[in-house]
Design a protein around this nucleic acid. Structure first.
Lengths: 168, 168
DNA sequence: CCGCCCGGCGTTACAGTATAGCAGCACGCA
DNA sequence: TGCGTGCTGCTATACTGTAACGCCGGGCGG
């Protein structure tokens, strides 16, 4: 068994240039879909863009409301279908403990994913800790359990929210 | 850091004497509530018994239907309140990825819990692998993340379902 | 004993999450 | 041209969960 190094989860400071996060994510998505022959339609692209509107997990019905361009309100299946497509291609993840969705910063790779969810600011950060996956796979195998999907969602406070800010 | 041993998850064979699982669980619950001064009312006891009706995760609305004794149908808040009480006392766990509830075999201890969920037979088994918790806590700490709750839900096939039975 | 409080339960009503199933439309292709 | 396929839109409905109010019974101080 090779020992992959663990990735570092990236939390973002309040002042980071978020527009570039969005643009990069969309560019990665365009690229991945082109390579796979999948169709990143305007609707799907828009939903992905909305999911990337923040580093927090976004609820489907909030997307629905955001899609509503003033005229006809979008209907649930519209957004759920777009999310389904994005999930299938690893462009977004669903956070089960929040019933919400978050953009995947490294789409396309069969990566392990553990989510760090800040209960204060709501930011969700994806880790890729191979060491955790190994520990899990090892224990599952020891029980004779044939593992197919690993859900790890960690709630707590992100570094910025956990550290009392100067001034308090 | 002391190195706790990992527990073994217990899967049950089809023919096990389930009635004793239920009775044991209820006895543990009675005992725990007595020690804590918490009130295991008839309703709460009945909900716990229903949750323990199988080793699968049970949906709130299925409990609701099961509570319906023919006369007046039970209403959602009834069962959700009972589940809330049982969760608070660690007598049941909620499986977020299933929107369902499962009885806890070791209530009362601040244990780590990882759930092995069989997609075939539906059985849910709780592991208590301290090694996994340690790996998770370590990585969270390395990221400066203040961990408060660890959700680990593993989907796959239980040993019985993963092993092709004689006869096929 | 009486009155009060409080926890548990019941009810109504509603909010939030998700899917089934069918119709129309655009596009590529035989 | 005609057809199939994939995307989108719609209606309708199912499923999951909570807010808010009121009743009731039991404990407890007066």
């Amino acid at each position: 068994m090779d020992t992959l190094p663990d990735d570092r989860p990236a939390f973002h400071d309040g002042g980071h240039e978020h527009q570039s996060c969005v643009e990069d994510a969309l560019a990665r998505a365009e690229d991945l879909c082109r390579r796979r022959g999948a169709r990143l339609t305007p609707l799907r692209r828009r939903v992905l863009e909305l999911v990337w509107g923040s580093h927090r997990a976004v609820k489907a019905y909030d997307l629905l409301a955001a899609l509503d361009d003033g005229a006809g309100a979008a209907k649930p299946p519209t957004v759920y279908r777009a999310l389904e497509f994005l999930k299938e291609h690893g462009l977004v993840h669903r956070i089960d403990s929040l019933n919400a969705f978050v953009g995947c910063p490294q789409p396309g790779e069969g990566h392990s994913a553990q989510f760090l969810i800040c209960g204060e600011c709501g930011e969700v950060s994806e880790m890729n800790a191979a060491s955790i996956d190994r520990a899990v796979a090892e224990r599952a195998a020891a029980s004779g359990f044939a593992l197919s999907r690993i859900i790890i969602e960690l709630h707590g406070r992100c570094p910025r929210c956990a550290t009392p800010s100067r001034g308090i």
